[in-house]
Design a protein around this nucleic acid. Structure first.
Lengths: 206, 206, 206, 206
DNA sequence: TACTAAGCGAGACGGTACGTCCCGTCTTGTT
DNA sequence: AACAAGACGGGACGTACCGTCTCGCTTAGTA
């Protein structure tokens, strides 16, 4: 931690080699087929160098796949629907790669590890900030009477994409992102029977 | 398979004991803590009896948690929103139990096993029939000009619920199902910018 | 047991098929590679038909390899040495086949099974009667002052042959039987330092 | 192998613990009742530590019971008969313990494993050197005209003892070693009908 | 220049689960 | 009641992986 602590400093090439080897092997063998020993061998390092950095295999995988995956700033397209369209494409780009389903699944299975769960939540918060920005813009623009809960929109957008790609194993059908953006935007603007807004319980007339 | 094949027939009580013990131990120890040997011990049977039925631990878990989980008939509530509200509650009831996230995640991680993937898809088809019924009713009722793709609605509904509960680890917030039903129903009825219908590429005016 | 007991009588072809299949598979796979299921399959019968006849796999193997192996009458060659030479050749013929070492070893390893041990002893008694006959003849002939303990001679003759062939894995060297017969006969006739006779403790002067 | 190969070196205490635990459990449960898992548990180590050293259970047992069992130097008693008497007692001490029959039998049954067979032969060579020494002394002493084949004497001595104790299951009768030494010594000195010497085919007159 | 502290590759360690195999018994329907 | 077929409870096998722990060596900063 401290920059000048005694002893030999960590070798940054080792850090990079671990993450790189993890990604390569995830692509080759999938999450279930990934072993720490194989990562070490592929990276040309010892297992101890991995465990000095990550407490568990899951943390290593998380670091290699999620960590630092930053959400880009959304372009202000001028409409909620187009903004959500961009968001859908962005999320698809992040979690759409084959193998990601297995990785996320594996992390999910081990999410009883509180460490992994916390990291996952931290990553979610990043995406939410972006979503909040999109929703605030739409509200300012007058498309929405009040900003809905970003967590709700996040769950719908990301969940739908994840389910289609990785749960049902269906490819990225042309137009899915369009449909999703149109439906969610439409539903937020015209909720059937009223959609309670964040922080208030009143219904919004359709 | 055939009713009168030679030899001692499978003992149905063994089938039941395996599934029951699997469910109990999943609840007790979670997916990661589940052991085939423990299932056998709890069921009072031998490991061979399990492996005679399921090739891997994953298939056993799938059978115990997914297989035969039949989707009930949707009540005709008279409105798409209320039907989707019922659907959201039903899905939540099916996948909302704590631990299911780990199970689904574990299955996902092993979904490179084509067997598990196929079984998953088969299960999805069941839910889709129910969704198609709901959408057809809404169309007949005049709420929707044409029935949307059930697979799309399925992905949105199930994905949103799964993401909220198991990816983000947020509890079943009061009103989440309401919001989801309102938003999706509203979005299907009034898609922003037009929503292509199944089998045609034309946009429907909002 | 009783000739006219009720029910279907045992099928003698099954008895033969079991023993035959056991011998074939012993030759093919050795004792360690022998399984009851394989014997049943090869014999075209069910496992139960085997266990109806033999309580354990060991008993089956014993029956297939040892049982009924009757020791032929020794020709009266006129000299102890020649009689023992014949005995050595006979024993070699009985236990010399490749694979017999493994069978005997396996039986030995399971000889804590009292049943197998008893059967083994019963078989030994047969050989001993033959040896006793040879020794009695030599005594009557005047070659020996008194008949030595047949068990002793049995152990020496059979043990030497077994050790050479199966413990040390040396082939049936030409002349080994000659040497053995000459040495044992010579030693019985001229024991160094005196050899106590059966039933008396006195030494016989050389 | 090489003294300075990389990595953590084998722990010699683990080697010792394995062999010790194997011997203890062989005495307690016999060869058939011996389990690798039980050895590991008793030794307080993991199964992998055993399989890192021995490819199979049989190799482990061999190492624990045979390997390094060194034959002591024979005292020069002054007579072949007394030397063989000492040899008989020594062999009895080595293979006479109850349970050794099962062990040797089990090893024999698995001797199709070439590894075990080779190891067995290596062990035999040790004993033979001792026997060769005894026979050479007797030859030098003038008791024998020429040294017989040590392998022959080895087979007779060891085979007789093994057969008596473990094949026929007879205890170590008082005097058996005496009889054996007297007979073999007498037979070597006065072979009936001539005993071909090592390397020549001529008969020695009695 | 030496000393100290930590990092490094390599791989052994205790532990645990896997999926396979076999034993000896039991349960079908058939002969 | 014996038969062929094969499922059953039980349990050992040998493999694989996890996360920890030594080895001997290297690489900095400190004295």
């Amino acid at each position: 931690m401290s920059p000048n602590r005694p002893g030999r400093p960590r070798d940054e090439r080792v850090d990079a080699a671990i993450l790189q080897a993890t990604r390569v092997l995830l692509a080759e063998a999938g999450y279930a087929g990934l072993t720490v020993a194989a990562v070490a061998a592929r990276a040309g390092i010892g297992k101890a160098a991995i465990y000095r950095r990550y407490a568990t295999k899951q943390e290593m995988v998380f670091a290699a796949t999620m960590h630092g995956a930053q959400v880009p700033q959304p372009p202000d397209t001028g409409s909620l629907r187009a903004d959500l369209r961009w968001l859908a494409a962005t999320i698809t780009g992040m979690i759409g790669a084959p193998g990601v389903g297995g990785v996320l699944g594996g992390l999910l299975a081990d999410m009883e590890d509180e460490a992994v769960a916390t990291a996952m939540r931290g990553f979610a918060a990043l995406e939410r900030a972006t979503i909040a920005l999109i929703l605030d813009r739409a509200t300012a623009r007058g498309e929405l009477p009040a900003a809905p809960d970003p967590a709700f929109v996040h769950a719908v957008m990301m969940g739908a994409i994840f389910a289609r790609l990785h749960v049902f194993g269906e490819g990225d059908r042309e137009g899915f992102a369009d449909d999703l953006a149109s439906t969610v935007a439409g539903g937020l603007i015209h909720p059937a029977g009223g959609l309670p807004r964040q922080g208030d319980g009143t219904a919004t007339p359709g």
